[in-house]
């Protein structure tokens, strides 16, 4: 219990004094995870929607694979991305290993299946509701996808937030591909792992509370923004 109090106290002082290292790694955490979220959403939202409305022979298999990919162990993703981006790997010439870009790539791979799968679930329901109308109006496939994405944006936001939550709390993959380099690739989660390793539980826990507060703040911010737009209809 004393450790937890010490952690709360450490978090309090870190935030109150606006510790410059804390601000830096917090912003980097946000930068990496939000960028990963944008790219993952650009892939997963249309793909999940497409999967909900398109009938093709291996659809069930594709959905099963997608759901399985949701459980991808981040460490394995990290290792594979590491081997691909290593100077001795196929994409070594780009020199991306141990940069925020590498961390973003790993996170995109981890959260895309999650977002696509939640999107698919939500879009399938909406599609069942809209199906007859959109068919009757002789819509093109593109128009259908755009309509479903627009009208299902609340569910898609939930999917995206789930992806963000997974990304910002992830440590295994970004530790391997980012290297936890101070002032370059250190983020909240890798800093927590580092401080735990040093036995400084109070600081580790303090950073942990900052991470939780950050995730909460982002969720509340996004929900309140969308609520203003939607006039409290949600």
């Amino acid at each position: 219990m004393t450790d937890i109090w010490a952690g709360l106290e450490a978090a309090f002082w870190l935030i109150v004094t606006l510790d410059s290292d804390l601000v830096e790694i917090t912003l980097r955490s946000l930068q990496v995870s939000v960028t990963a979220l944008v790219f993952a959403s650009l892939i997963a939202l249309p793909f999940g929607t497409w999967l909900a409305i398109r009938r093709f022979r291996y659809r069930r298999t594709a959905i099963a694979v997608l759901n399985a990919l949701m459980g991808l162990p981040p460490v394995v993703v990290g290792l594979i991305v590491y081997l691909l981006l290593s100077r001795s790997g196929p994409f070594g010439v780009f020199g991306l290993l141990f940069t925020p870009t590498a961390m973003i790539i790993a996170q995109v791979i981890i959260i895309t299946p999650l977002i696509a799968s939640i999107t698919h679930q939500a879009m399938r329901e909406l599609w069942a509701e809209y199906h007859d109308l959109l068919i009757s109006l002789n819509t093109t496939k593109r128009q259908r996808i755009m309509t479903l994405i627009w009208d299902g944006r609340r569910a898609l936001l939930t999917a995206a937030l789930a992806g963000f939550g997974r990304a910002i709390g992830e440590v295994g993959a970004i530790m391997i591909v980012g290297g936890n380099i101070d002032h370059a690739t250190r983020v909240l989660t890798t800093a927590i792992a580092l401080e735990t390793g040093k036995g400084d539980f109070a600081l580790a826990l303090g950073l942990g509370f900052v991470l939780i507060a950050l995730a909460l703040a982002v969720n509340i911010l996004i929900h309140s923004l969308s609520r203003t737009e939607q006039e409290g209809r949600w």
């Binding site: 290593s86 001795s88 790997g89 290993l97 141990f98 290297g179 936890n180 380099i181």
Partner: peptide, 21 residues
């Protein structure tokens, strides 16, 4: 000179050197 430290075990440090990372 800005030295970026990769803090790893000796085994992994040697791997990183071998790969030229």
């Amino acid at each position: 000179l800005e030295v970026q430290l990769l803090v790893v075990g000796t085994g992994q440090a040697l791997r990183l050197g071998r790969a030229g990372d």
